[in-house]
Design a protein around this nucleic acid. Sequence first.
DNA 1: CAATAATTTGGACAACCGTCAAGACGGCTG
DNA 2: CAGCCGTCTTGACGGTTGTCCAAATTATTG
Lengths: 212, 212
Amino acid sequence: MARQATGAAQRVAVAAETLRDEKFNARRIELAEAALETLGELGFARTSLREIAQNSAFTHGVFHYYFSDKLDLICCCVRHYKAKCVTRYDEVVTTAQSRDELTEGFLAKLAATLENEARMHRLWYDLRSQAMFEPAFRKDVLEIDKSLEAMIWRIATRYAELGNKRPASSPAALYALFDGLFQSALLRHLADDKKAVPDLLDEVRRLLPTIC
Amino acid sequence: MARQATGAAQRVAVAAETLRDEKFNARRIELAEAALETLGELGFARTSLREIAQNSAFTHGVFHYYFSDKLDLICCCVRHYKAKCVTRYDEVVTTAQSRDELTEGFLAKLAATLENEARMHRLWYDLRSQAMFEPAFRKDVLEIDKSLEAMIWRIATRYAELGNKRPASSPAALYALFDGLFQSALLRHLADDKKAVPDLLDEVRRLLPTIC
DNA sequence: CAATAATTTGGACAACCGTCAAGACGGCTG
DNA sequence: CAGCCGTCTTGACGGTTGTCCAAATTATTG
């Protein structure tokens, strides 16, 4: 059959297939987004496919139609989540015209993230820990970590540039520092520590001039 | 009965009770230690009480006799785990007589920890993430975090002292930095990245002189 | 030694899990 | 319109989970 198809027919068939694939993939992302809702609420350990389905407009069967596996679903969630995060500070970086402007823009976004997207970020830390046990997560997690490191590095180099300097430490160390601070602040924030956010901001404000 | 007890009899009763309590508590720790074995292997999400029992010399019923709950068991594990960690570098700190000696001693312990106790440490990161979802964990986790911060601070102040200086950053920032670096190195190490350990050592070796 | 309490065992229980498959639905094509 | 195909629903399955409990065993006391 396929062998007898003319060039034109073949092109039509290929187009139809890619269309179908795109639709399929769009649906996967819809489902992943719904799953992220419950995952952010309960964490990886306590989240079941049925729970995800119940907290969404979908039935639990659909998830098995679009994902081969529970791990497949979670991996898709992680990958999709990545895209949202990595560009968070880019606007601030490109528009800021002075060190102060960059500092204040960065701090404002940092505080807003901690306050409004705590659930998504605790899920990220959860999944990164899971990657230490589950090899299937490692590739995606390491990749996301790399791009977060690059994100921090963009901020640091721009900050240095605005002061005609160069960052004093490596990308890895800088990311480790900010990631560690954010992680600690997030835990304190979730534990209803009112000082978590201001303490983080103070710390970062003090740190920025010393690293460049 | 108890009301009629003489002072001496009462003292005996109290002594007997505390003895029983100590025995009870010693058993709890035995069980917690056995549980840590499996928890380190599988992580929090995949570890069941039956699995814990099967990988140990105990039956699953015992765990319910000594712990009211699964969370109760895990909390006890975390608390017990704490004691092991916090003193890891203390010997190096007290015996080192020069900056170089302290640096090399610290780096050696760091490398050994990463290589030999990866399982226990990934469990720690797992549980710290769980604390973001499960309030019952938070108190213990925050407490451990504080004492780990103090541990790092002891190293830093000693390092500064040996150079007649003072640490340039806060305890929180310093702990965030080292914790972030270690966490990242651990994940890479578990993902069979041969450069994980040497990269960490290089980074720390470069960093130490800059923070004091 | 008897009897009372503490400890341990191992099975029963309901609830839940991930997975699967048979069938229903609806749109598209021939 | 009939038939097909992709999509989705629903219920069932074997297995695992945390919890509980009655009975067995061991230690402690009088």
